[in-house]
């Protein structure tokens, strides 16, 4: 039996509800995007239902502690095609077993969720580290990113708490939405601008002192390096090359 859903969290949770209503033997959960009809397997299209999804989420909330609820959400944000099935199987496993079943790291779905959640948290942490704001002419601090996973919902709090007295925008170029902080609250925005400008604002769009501080930072990055300890392998391990495009200090001056 294959359950097909639209990829939303609501759809995923509805699918869990449908499973317990029907109790078919084995089920595979797939998104519409990857679903291929199969002559020998039945399929069921999941229709999103807020009430059903809420019931499942409340159930999970009762059974899982804060850390596991966060893992569940993080794993969902990874958007990996195979994680949806894992989340689905994990939920069924939790509901079918007595409390505490989520600690069974010997179970493949439990382990998969813990491991993917770690990956997502790592990406979130990298974004907190590697985002480089550019000060624009209108006083905004801007940064465009394209993280591996959809981590914007996870980094809101960090940036809101930290940069409370400056307006900032963090824009996800890949998923085409961003966060805008207006000194009071953070709102989700989409910007209709050409992609090139979103990636790197032009000199006219930037504040006059931006270049000076970028150069000072590049200088600092060079001066603080100890030549005789050069260790490129370690360097690349910590700052994988795909992140270099964000980093001011890695751009040519």
């Amino acid at each position: 039996m294959i359950y097909v859903f639209d990829g939303s969290l609501e759809g995923l949770l509805t699918a869990v509800f449908e499973y317990f209503e029907r109790k078919p033997k084995t089920v595979l959960l797939q998104t519409e995007k990857v679903f291929q009809p199969d002559a020998f397997t039945e399929s069921l299209k999941i229709v999103n239902n807020r009430a059903k999804a809420d019931r499942v989420w409340n159930g999970l909330q009762k059974r899982l502690d804060k850390q596991w609820r966060r893992r569940f959400y993080c794993a969902y944000l990874s958007e990996l095609p195979e994680i949806f099935n894992s989340l689905f199987q994990f939920s069924n496993y939790i509901f079918n077993h007595p409390a505490g079943a989520e600690k069974n790291f010997g179970n493949e779905h439990v382990l998969a969720i813990a491991q993917i959640a770690t990956k997502v948290e790592r990406e979130k942490h990298r974004m907190e580290a590697f985002i480089r704001f550019q000060h624009t002419a209108d006083g905004m601090f801007y940064c465009g990113i394209d993280p591996d996973f959809n981590v914007l919902p996870l980094i809101v709090k960090h940036f809101k708490d930290r940069y409370a007295d400056q307006q900032w925008i963090i824009y996800d170029l890949k998923r085409r939405y961003g966060l805008f902080y207006d000194l009071l609250s953070v709102t989700e925005i989409t910007i209709e601008l050409n992609a090139k400008n979103l990636k790197q604002p032009t000199v006219q769009q930037l504040n006059g002192t931006e270049e000076m501080y970028a150069n000072l930072w590049k200088d600092y990055f060079k001066s603080t390096n100890i030549e005789s300890r050069k260790n490129t392998k370690l360097h690349v391990q910590h700052v994988p090359k795909r992140y270099w495009k964000y980093l001011t200090e890695k751009q040519l001056s």
């Binding site: 907190e128 603080t224 390096n225 300890r229 050069k230 260790n231 490129t232 392998k233 700052v239 200090e249």
Partner: peptide, 10 residues
């Protein structure tokens, strides 16, 4: 938070 790493890996 480590914001970047120098070429010596620190």
């Amino acid at each position: 938070i480590c914001h970047t790493y120098t070429e010596d890996g620190r």
